[in-house]
Design a protein around this nucleic acid. Structure first.
Lengths: 105, 105
DNA sequence: GTTGTGTGCAACTCCAGAGTTGCACATGCT
DNA sequence: AGCATGTGCAACTCTGGAGTTGCACACAAC
């Protein structure tokens, strides 16, 4: 996963309301209206957030009768986490190498 | 690490310019002016970004003569990655449990 | 001392996005 | 059929933040 694909995910995760939505959808599959009942924002706001989250694969949706249920996609988060960890490790590795050279006798 | 401490880190990582800065600082320790030479933004913009990144522990700084050098902190990223992975796993675990109950005979 | 380079602070512009209201449409239930 | 509920789309407001310019100060080198 490149940095280019990473940024939109972080942009999605940078909002408190979206985290609140994800927290709900990580415990149960809910419709936009059901989410609006549990959170202090409008259903339309929720719908917009769900679009952002779906765009980068953090939520999946399906119709159930006349309502649309949504759920959090944990694997997408795990995938992102692995990419992050790799980058962090790489930073430390490279900077440690530079320090080693600088302190060489 | 709670979700509360997580959001600012993602807000910091949600910007392309900041990622560019982090990429540079993951390979070498540079001053704000040196970064401004390599990136298509002003030194003042870089300084603001560095403040955001330092605020959530993603970069560290130290004075070297009259200049201030900065470096990326990989461990902070790794730490965040582990928290993310735990949350993702938890989502999948809970939703799988619900599906199992729903499909029970 | 003077010059050049690096830093710090403040005020300003500008746009993306978070949230709202309003209306129209679809579908389930009685 | 009639009503209630869930959804979709569009237009609007408003604040945060990314980036800029401008100026003042610190320190190293000559």
């Amino acid at each position: 996963m490149s940095t280019t694909t990473l940024t939109p995910v972080f942009a999605a995760l940078a909002d408190d309301t979206r985290w609140a939505i994800l927290q709900e959808l990580g415990s149960a599959e809910l419709s936009a209206s059901a989410l609006a009942d549990r959170l202090p924002v409008t259903r339309q706001a929720i719908t917009k957030h769900l679009a952002v989250l779906a765009e980068c694969g953090l939520v999946e949706s399906y119709r159930a009768g006349r309502e649309v249920r949504h759920r959090a996609v944990g694997s997408r988060l795990t995938e992102t986490a692995r990419a992050l960890e790799a980058i962090g490790t790489e930073w430390d590795r490279r900077l440690a190498a530079i320090r080693r050279i600088a302190e060489a006798p």
